[in-house]
């Protein structure tokens, strides 16, 4: 079900829990599916001994992809016209993530109804891990 311009208001929010406990295995799944095998995301020995991080961490694109589920669940299948984020903080195994969309504008452009959203995903400490914007076509 797509959103309807007549039923959505600036300031409305939609929140979805993405994970309670991000596993290293899900990060490996993402490496396999995306093709990004950077050892920083799966190879503990390389990441701690060579790159000097405390442990492996999620691909930014995994967090963006997980957050995308919240966005498409909110606006409907095939409705997105734009989606972009900044990666503001690393996501570590064990993190719990919650994503929220907030309606910034409901507008018309070239006869189409559009909604502009702010998108934010936070970890268990409330720290923002990705933040960005999305735009979707909605029904009148």
């Amino acid at each position: 079900m797509a959103l309807q311009a007549s039923k959505v208001q600036v300031g409305d929010t939609y929140t979805q829990k993405l994970t309670d406990d991000l596993s290293r295995t899900q990060i490996v799944q993402y490496a396999g599916a995306s093709g990004d095998y950077n050892p920083l995301h799966s190879d503990e020995i390389f990441t701690t001994k060579v790159a000097k991080y405390p442990t492996v961490f999620a691909h930014g694109m995994l967090t963006m992809g997980m957050t995308g589920r919240m966005v498409t669940d909110f606006v409907g299948d095939g409705r997105l016209t734009a989606y972009g984020v900044r990666f503001t903080r690393q996501v570590w195994p064990g993190d719990a993530l919650t994503a929220t969309a907030k309606v910034d504008a409901v507008r018309e452009e070239d006869g189409k109804n559009l909604v502009d959203l702010s998108v934010t995903t936070v970890n268990q400490d409330g720290d923002v891990v990705v933040m960005g914007k999305a735009t979707a076509k909605i029904d009148p």
């Binding site: 994970t19 799944q29 599916a33 992809g65 997980m66 589920r69």
Partner: peptide
């Protein structure tokens, strides 16, 4: 596989 990896059951 990609949707599974990003945790999207749609």
């Amino acid at each position: 596989m990609f949707a599974r990896a990003v945790g999207d059951p749609n």
